[in-house]
């Protein structure tokens, strides 16, 4: 379910050169065309969708590198909330 929402956000904001539904959860999104600017838009959209705020120590490229990495990070941030 969470991955579906992430895919939808990537479709709207990721500016990928591939359909997010055709990508593996571990696929490198930067290799799939996501720019630095697009990754920040993805971050902002994820924050809105999941009502979270990525703390400074998680503002790093690896967190937004793949759908799986995003899911794990969001799961960690929403745990217990």
């Amino acid at each position: 379910m969470m991955i579906e929402k992430i895919r939808k956000i990537l479709k709207d904001h990721g500016r990928l050169n591939k359909d997010p539904w055709a990508l593996d959860e571990a696929a490198d999104l930067y290799q799939a065309g996501m720019t630095s600017h697009a990754s920040v838009n993805v971050m902002l959209a994820l924050e809105g969708e999941f009502e979270i705020e990525f703390p400074d120590h998680l503002l790093k490229r690896s967190v937004f590198e793949s759908m799986g990495a995003m899911r794990d990070t969001i799961a960690g941030l929403t745990k217990g909330s």
């Binding site: 600017h37 920040v40 990525f54 490229r61 937004f64």
Partner: peptide, 10 residues
């Protein structure tokens, strides 16, 4: 946002 962008530059 600017910090996030900077870190996304790889």
């Amino acid at each position: 946002e600017l910090r996030a962008l900077q870190m996304a530059l790889n």
